[in-house]
């Protein structure tokens, strides 16, 4: 077990380094001289060279990369070209927004998946509806679902605010009413794909002998389903949740744009529009790192439970 974790971590380190370096190299070489971008089109070659020297852009990429990492480890991600604000200052307040949105969305997707696909009644009667919802959930782009929800619940019914973000401190009700539509929007995709995975696992769990044993005890079908099949079917979903964090980030970016939420995604899209190199880089590398760590954690959780369960 320990050796498995060690191996996973050892495997992850070169991956993280390779991916972040590739990203760094691509961004720096393709964008051309960031100095030119900062100075604008009027700048003379001498001015650009001077600025390059000042910021160290004339050094080899690998040196710049190591330098960047060394600073990043100390919490210094450089300064935004556009706002001149430190990247850390711009980034920090956006992280809780995105994290909250993502966590709620995962939670909602998992709970809805399990509810719709486990209860025997729901499986028989609701199955066709669930299937349709899952297919729509998978195929509808976040922005489309987002504007439809805004149109129905905010514009037509006027039940909820259209867009924006209100922190917890402004009141629980206000906070939740702003976050509910984004959460549903982001969760829809995951409801779809979790449903596909969960159903397969659930069917597999149902074929196992202990399900027959549970029935033979005289348990009700609901209890057989919820107490015996469900816990065994949900474990693989844990891994799948871990694996789908990458796509989740993409969905979160789109969702934040639709609902004008001050999250990492909106900051990122703004930075891309403005070719704000340090912000793009910081977010890109943080996201890759975060997703890989989350993957590692979900893998370790899954393996440890699974080993206990199946090998022991």
């Amino acid at each position: 077990m320990l050796s498995h974790i060690t191996r996973r971590i050892l495997l992850m380190i070169p991956n993280v380094i390779a991916m972040t370096f590739l990203l760094f190299a691509t961004v720096s070489s393709f964008l051309g001289s960031p100095a030119a971008a900062m100075l604008g089109q009027e700048a003379s070659l001498e001015e650009i060279a001077a600025l390059n020297k000042q910021y160290g852009f004339d050094r080899p990429i690998i040196v710049q990369y190591l330098d960047w990492i060394a600073h990043a480890l100390r919490g210094d991600f450089g300064r935004s070209y556009t706002s001149q604000q430190s990247v850390a200052d711009a980034l920090l307040p956006t992280i809780p927004v995105t994290l909250e949105l993502s966590l709620w969305a995962i939670l909602l997707a998992v709970v809805a998946t399990v509810l719709f696909n486990s209860v025997p009644f729901a499986r028989r009667v609701v199955q066709p509806i669930t299937t349709t919802l899952a297919v729509i959930g998978i195929t509808i782009p976040n922005f489309m679902l987002g504007i439809c929800l805004i149109f129905i619940f905010a514009v037509k019914l006027r039940w909820l605010p259209t867009t924006g973000w209100v922190p917890w401190s402004a009141g629980v009700g206000a906070h939740l009413s702003h976050i509910i539509l984004p959460v549903v929007t982001l969760a829809a995709n995951y409801f779809g794909s979790f449903t596909l995975v969960y159903r397969e696992e659930y069917k597999a769990a149902y074929r196992r002998l202990f399900i027959k044993v549970a029935r033979a005890k005289g348990l009700s079908e609901t209890r057989v389903s919820l107490v015996h099949a469900l816990p065994n079917a949900i474990l693989p979903v844990v891994t799948y949740v871990g694996l789908s964090l990458g796509p989740l980030v993409g969905g979160a970016v789109v969702t934040e744009m639709v609902f004008s939420m001050p999250g990492v995604g909106r900051l990122f899209v703004g930075a891309i529009g403005a070719h704000d190199f340090p912000v793009m880089l910081a977010i890109g590398i943080l996201v890759i790192f975060g997703v890989m760590v989350a993957n590692l954690v979900s893998d370790i959780v899954y393996t440890s439970i699974n080993r206990q369960v199946s090998l022991g």
């Binding site: 694996l243 789109v254 977010i283």
Partner: peptide, 8 residues
């Protein structure tokens, strides 16, 4: 598969 494809 694990990478955030849209971000890339």
């Amino acid at each position: 598969v694990a990478l955030p494809a849209l971000i890339l």
